[in-house]
Design a protein around this nucleic acid. Structure first.
Length: 307
DNA sequence: GTTCTAGAAC
DNA sequence: GTTCTAGAAC
């Protein structure tokens, strides 16, 4: 009965036809081995999840050379698989989380598929940023060290971290690029290359990381109250990420000619600061035109820079 | 994972 | 006041 929310990604990963996924799941792209969906509770302007599909067919006939492996049996069906024969797939149990994947001989191969797919996702995001805002900014690829939903998912998330769904400290810190809870794809790949089969810290230690201070990943400032951090993130995004892209040289003319447009946008969006899904907001012809005017409030930094 | 509620703690 | 922690969710 309990609606198993934690199995939602498993169901998506098992989909035979990603095109036929429920509208609610908002599929972005898919290929033979991965499916990418919009995060249902996006914690930034752009936030996608890249999942390895089930079954995940290994391309090589054998998993990576087991450094010291007893003859393995597939955890999924309990049957012995004798090497090179036709279809061997990565057991779903290996893809429950980044932790189980690390222990799997298929780790490198699954990561490779996620990397390739996420490259395409980043292309998509970058293009949309350019169209919507006339500039681009940081995008991170990372796994949560301790996920709450079953099935491996790579977060692809823009580092503005501006979203009304970002509601708690643990949300913020779980994506913070230096806190350590978010395990970047590059780092995980390096672990696999180095032969690591477990994460460096315990689950409890990772969870502790979520309890630290509210420190901006942009400026290093710490905030006492979550709403202050939220205001900072929003202000930084508008004033330091978006605004600089239109400050220089030839933009004067453009700015002038587009002033009316910008004003319209401003008033139109005043009620609800643009928080709609980015991909549905394409309407302007000129990339530069879509840059939102930074408006009046120059600097609404909180009064408590420290502690 | 989210939403909601409650009380304790700062 | 806001944050933190905990529990329930048919």
């Amino acid at each position: 009965m309990a609606p198993q929310w934690d199995k939602a990604l498993v169901k998506i990963a098992r989909s035979h036809d990603p095109e036929a996924l429920p509208l609610d799941d908002r599929m972005l792209i898919y290929d033979k081995r991965t499916i990418t969906i919009y995060d249902k509770f996006a914690k930034a302007k752009y936030h996608f999840l890249v999942l390895p599909r089930i079954p995940f067919h290994a391309s090589s006939s054998k998993p990576a050379l087991s450094s010291q492996g007893a003859p393995t049996l597939s955890a999924s069906n309990g049957k012995l698989n004798f090497g090179a024969t036709s279809s061997n797939s990565v057991p779903a149990s290996h893809m429950k989380s980044i932790s189980t994947l690390l222990a799997s001989p298929y780790a490198a191969e699954v990561l490779e598929a996620l990397r390739e797919a996420s490259d395409r996702v980043i292309e998509h995001i970058t293009k949309d940023m350019q169209e919507q805002y006339g500039t681009t900014w940081d995008i991170e690829r990372a796994f949560h060290a301790v996920p709450s939903m079953e099935h491996l998912h790579l977060h692809v998330v823009s580092m503005d971290l501006v979203s009304d769904r970002l509601k708690h400290k643990k949300h913020f810190r779980s994506f913070h690029p230096t806190v350590g809870f978010a395990l970047r794809l590059d780092d995980v790949e390096a672990m696999v290359k180095a032969g690591r089969r477990t994460l460096p810290k315990s689950e409890a230690a990772y969870e502790q990381l979520l309890k630290g201070p509210l420190m901006s990943h942009h400026t290093g400032q710490t905030f006492k109250f979550f709403p202050e951090l939220k205001a900072h993130l929003e202000a930084y995004w508008r004033n330091s990420i978006l605004a600089p892209s239109r400050t220089s040289a030839g933009d004067a003319a453009i700015t002038t000619s587009l002033k009316r447009d910008a004003v319209e946008q401003e008033s139109g969006a005043s009620a609800s600061p643009s928080d709609q899904p980015p991909s549905q907001l394409r309407r302007l012809d000129t990339p530069k035109a879509s840059v939102k005017e930074a408006s009046d409030s120059e600097d609404d930094e909180p009064s408590l820079p420290f502690r």
